[in-house]
């Protein structure tokens, strides 16, 4: 069914139409949330919050922009909130972030490979830590632009729209992010 038809039906309260809309975009939203927030629990929360908000405000969608852009505006806001909250949380020592998802751990292939080449593994781990540090050093907005451009393959123009900014502003954000990476990782690669 055509998307506009689905949206109109969902706006009138058709639950199946809404579900079809969710299923058209939720993979992408979950990917963003998982890669940004890096924990299954937080990604789950961000997913639920995003689509509940979309559900509640769908009647406000006026077809004056791309639906995907509109939806990502909601999703990125939810994720940015989580990132900001987390920055505050980090300062409390009691909370331990669990980084490893169960599936990564169950999949023991990388470990086998790591044992075969301990030196390379050490280097990789150091690089990983360095990347982690530089990503945390980005502002929430830089982090989001970088996420959408580098990992999700969004055009800068669409990113600007989703974040309520111009393409030029998105480009500046991206530029600052990549500059910081280069400064932090340049001697490593």
């Amino acid at each position: 069914m055509e998307e506009a038809v689905l949206i109109r039906a969902a706006q009138k309260g058709d639950p199946d139409a809404f579900e079809q809309l969710v299923h058209a975009y939720d993979r992408g939203v979950l990917r963003v949330a998982m890669n940004l927030l890096r924990s299954t629990e937080d990604a789950y929360d961000a997913y639920q919050e995003t689509f509940l908000r979309v559900f509640k405000s769908l009647h406000l969608f006026r077809f004056d922009c791309n639906f995907q852009t509109w939806l990502y505006r909601v999703a990125t806001n939810v994720c940015l909130d989580h990132l900001r909250k987390r920055k505050v949380r980090r300062e409390e020592p009691a909370v331990v972030e669990t980084e490893e998802g169960q599936w990564n751990r169950m999949d023991n292939l990388p470990e086998d490979r790591a044992q075969a080449d301990p030196q390379r593994n050490l280097l990789n781990r150091q690089l990983g830590e360095r990347i982690e540090a530089v990503l945390q050093g980005l502002t929430a907005k830089e982090r989001m632009v970088f996420e959408l451009r580098h990992y999700q393959g969004f055009r800068l123009r669409a990113i600007g729209e989703a974040l309520g900014a111009s393409e030029e502003a998105a480009k500046t954000c991206l530029f600052r992010a990549t500059q910081k990476m280069r400064a932090a990782l340049g001697d490593f690669v």
């Binding site: 939720d26 998982m34 599936w103 990992y151």
Partner: peptide, 18 residues
Amino acid sequence: ALDAREKLPPAPLLARCR
């Protein structure tokens, strides 16, 4: 190096979220 760091959602997570 950044590509290699991407963290994908585990497959069952999508089903649970839905």
